[in-house]
């Protein structure tokens, strides 16, 4: 197992994986508890449009992913108001637009290539040094933001009216958590892939919630579950030559199943 760590691409994949395993549950916890699980899919499909735009016009796809996912985060919040009472429609609209743009850009770029497949399904060989620097920067923004805003984010997730009355700007924090989710998507795209990134926002959190712990403990447990899934997923991806995103998500699902079986056994 140690020998594969001698390879530069595997070292980069592991560094990227650790960042993914920390940031996904960190933001996923708030997304899940605010019942916004679909936002991961919306932002990831918007970032796909950005990646495709980068491939079409020849700029670094990461910048495209970042720009499109931030734009999507802004538009999701803007569209909530005209669809008050049916706010989830804003997600559907942006998701559809993201896919449509991605399909058009990919078509104009003359179809699929290996690099695009890496973005779609995740690839351990695809993480470049430049990717790592951007991922480190975005991860730092996410971690520092959550550290500073932790209690406020907890409060708006638990009782948004109570939070508003205590003087917290709930609408700003709702937008900010969506923005952080867009950063998380960009951080995770290389390793987990566009199609599966939202799973990693949700699955470790869903598994941790089954443990019956408080908020902070659940958050740390979900990060541990994500770390286990990412590390095992990356090694299996290397040895079995399979897409890293699929391997990581399958490990996450396996852990959820194991925890559910143990829990059911205890309750019986």
């Amino acid at each position: 197992m140690i020998e594969i760590l001698q390879y530069g691409f595997m070292q980069r994949a592991l560094i990227a994986g650790v960042m993914v395993a920390i940031t996904c549950p960190l933001i996923g916890m708030f997304i899940v508890l605010k019942r916004l699980s679909m936002i991961g899919d919306t932002l990831s499909h918007a970032s796909l449009a950005g990646i495709a735009a980068g491939m079409l016009w020849g700029f670094y796809p990461f910048w495209g992913a970042l720009a499109f996912s931030i734009l999507a985060a802004v538009l999701i919040e803007k569209l909530r108001k005209p669809f008050a009472g049916y706010e989830e429609l804003s997600n559907s609209i942006i998701l559809s637009t993201g896919i449509a743009l991605a399909v058009v850009f990919i078509g104009l770029a003359k179809g699929y290539n290996a690099d695009l497949m890496g973005y779609l399904f995740g690839s351990i060989a695809a993480v470049s040094k430049q990717d790592i620097y951007i991922m480190l920067f975005l991860s730092a923004v996410i971690i520092i933001s959550v550290a500073i805003l932790y209690h406020k984010l907890f409060y708006i997730s638990f009782d948004s009216e109570g939070a508003q009355i205590s003087g917290i700007s709930v609408s700003f924090l709702n937008f900010y958590i969506t923005l952080l989710a867009s950063f998380t998507i960009v951080v995770s795209t290389r390793i987990v892939g566009i199609f599966m990134v939202s799973s990693l926002l949700v699955l470790p959190v869903a598994t941790a919630m089954q443990m019956g712990k408080g908020f902070k403990k659940s958050l740390f447990i979900s990060i541990i579950f994500a770390l286990i899934a990412v590390v095992f997923g990356l090694f299996f991806s290397y040895y079995l030559d399979i897409a890293s995103g699929g391997a990581i998500v399958l490990f996450s699902v396996l852990m959820l199943i194991i925890v559910l079986i143990i829990k059911t056994g205890k309750e019986a």
Binding site: V146, F158, A208, K213, G214, F215
Partner: peptide
């Protein structure tokens, strides 16, 4: 019924602490 989902993972202590931090940070 409007305030929270009973499956929300929070301890009693975390709930009572929530309004006390409206102007401060994690650390």
């Amino acid at each position: 019924v409007e305030a929270f989902n009973t499956r929300f993972p929070a301890t009693v202590e975390e709930v009572v602490k929530a309004p006390l931090y409206s102007g401060s940070a994690f650390f």
